[in-house]
């Protein structure tokens, strides 16, 4: 399928002021992230809090202009330093995590959903009303609700409204920033179904940011695991879930609860905290917490390289794989990666 979004070495650097007379330090919130996304596919971005997932979302939607790197939308290079123009905005839209904060409490659903059309198209008032009511039906809301205010809706309905707003301009790419993590379990399933349905019907490409691996496993075609502003592993979903290769990915996956009574599995407990972005450690940023760390890890920064159909940023991946392979072969996906 056609590629709709490609990021090349995206970087986002913030200046952190230390004090009045001290030199300000730079924080690399996003440190060279690259990926490519085809129409109708979902790229899941996973990682713990503070790993740069949301910064990536903000860079992709150009809420914040990335400090460096290239962004290609449907084969066109986006000028990230310029204010995005209408044509570009129509192609990439976003759904936020918290449906209670992402809807303007002072506007009716109608006003909110027609805002994108009002600002970017020449549709008449009647046409806009028509478009809004079609879209509301599309996301499973009754069009009569258009004149209501957000506070009259439940969390799940609000998230449907937020999805509807993102789709009003018929985008090609939708960035979903933890779209279901604020919802309870039953509603979560409904929203995920809606997203899958919309994707199939409209050929949307999703960048799905999440920390919930069970959700990711269900929806993702490709997975990018981020740590400390970098991708540490990037592969298609099947490969990464059946055979995670980076020690961080393994630890992350082992932390996902499995709904099986009596199921005992070995959990990899990570020591310590992610390093301070103000003072990054030498070499591999995961080194200080890694069970397999050796002298070489502190000397060089690992870059993504291909290994067994995946991209892995670990210099010792082969050695680690070799030592854990006997365990991984037969068992089911999620609990296959305990070290011996």
């Amino acid at each position: 399928m056609a590629e709709v979004l490609r990021a090349v070495n995206l970087q986002q650097v913030y200046a952190a002021r230390q004090g009045l007379f001290q030199k300000s330090l730079s924080v690399h919130a996003l440190n060279g992230v690259s990926f490519s996304l085809n129409a109708g596919e979902t790229l899941a971005v996973v990682g713990e809090s503070g790993c740069g997932k949301s910064t990536l979302a903000r860079a992709l939607t150009l809420i914040e202009t990335p400090s460096a790197g290239e962004l290609w939308l449907a084969g066109e290079l986006v000028d990230t330093q310029k204010k995005p123009e209408a044509a570009l905005r129509q192609r990439i839209q976003m759904v936020f995590q918290n449906p209670y904060g992402s809807l303007n409490p002072r506007k009716t659903i109608q006003q909110m959903l027609e805002e994108p059309l009002l600002l970017n198209t020449q549709l008449s008032r009647e046409q806009r009303r028509q478009a809004v009511s079609t879209m509301m039906e599309r996301v499973g809301l009754r069009p009569e609700f258009a004149e209501r205010y957000p506070h009259m809706f439940s969390g799940g309905q609000r998230q449907r409204i937020a999805i509807a707003r993102a789709l009003m301009l018929k985008p090609q790419v939708v960035v979903l920033d933890e779209p279901v993590s604020a919802l309870d379990l039953s509603v979560r399933a409904q929203i995920l179904n809606l997203l899958t349905e919309l994707q199939q019907d409209l050929g949307l490409a999703y960048v799905f940011i999440s920390h919930d691996l069970s959700v990711v496993q269900r929806i993702a075609d490709a997975v990018m695991v981020m740590y400390f502003g970098r991708a540490v592993e990037y592969a298609d979903a099947k490969t990464i879930f059946s055979h995670p290769q980076h020690p961080y990915t393994q630890a992350l996956f082992s932390a996902t609860p499995v709904a099986e009574v009596g199921e005992k599995r070995e959990r990899i407990h990570l020591q310590g905290e992610p390093p301070s972005p103000l003072h990054p450690p030498p070499g591999c940023p995961f080194g200080p917490r890694c069970a397999y760390v050796q002298a070489i890890c502190r000397q060089q920064l690992p870059h993504l390289r291909t290994l067994n159909q995946a991209w892995v940023a670990c210099v010792r991946a082969e050695a680690i794989n070799a030592s854990s392979l006997p365990n991984t072969s037969a068992k089911s996906l999620l609990h296959s990666h305990a070290p011996p």
Binding site: T61, I63, P84, A86, R89, Q93, M94, F96, Q97, N98, G101, S102, L103, N104, P105, E115, P116, L119, N120, A162, R165, M168, L169
Partner: peptide, 22 residues
């Protein structure tokens, strides 16, 4: 910095619209 303001910005609201309307 609330999400609804950012959402308006993403769909292309100008600074003036964000200030007075949103």
């Amino acid at each position: 910095n609330r999400d609804y303001v950012i959402a308006s910005r993403i769909v292309g609201a100008s600074n003036r619209r964000l200030m007075f309307n949103t």
